[in-house]
Amino acid sequence: MHLAYPAVLSALLFCTGLYGVLARRNAILVLMSVELMLNAVNLNLVAFDVWLSKAARDTLHSGQALTLFTIAVAAAEIGIGLAIVLAVHRNRGTSDIDRLRDTAEGHEDGTPTDGAADEKAEATA
């Protein structure tokens, strides 16, 4: 198989996820786009690992091992990310990223941990 097929497909999927991350407004849709980007990277890793495992003499199958690690990290990321989004939604009543602009709570008794969670949600987003 030509190596350009999986490489081009993964580039296109990555840019699709990039558009989704930049253009979406709901935090959960942004997380979905992040998943698309991670999957594009995984496809690249697998394709190049298959190529190198036949081309080079002995490899450590590092591409496939890294793919498995990436999948596990993505599962952890989506769990924590959704927990943060739910916490933000509980505190603010919205998961709309455009309206989550301030890192502090709007009123005076906001605990700093809430602000930290919100800030992390925006960083994740």
Binding site: C15, L18, Y19, L22, A23, R24, R25, D98
Partner: peptide, 13 residues
Amino acid sequence: ADSGNRWVALAVA
């Protein structure tokens, strides 16, 4: 569902 900077995002992508 889409925010206002959709066209900028489309251009970047």
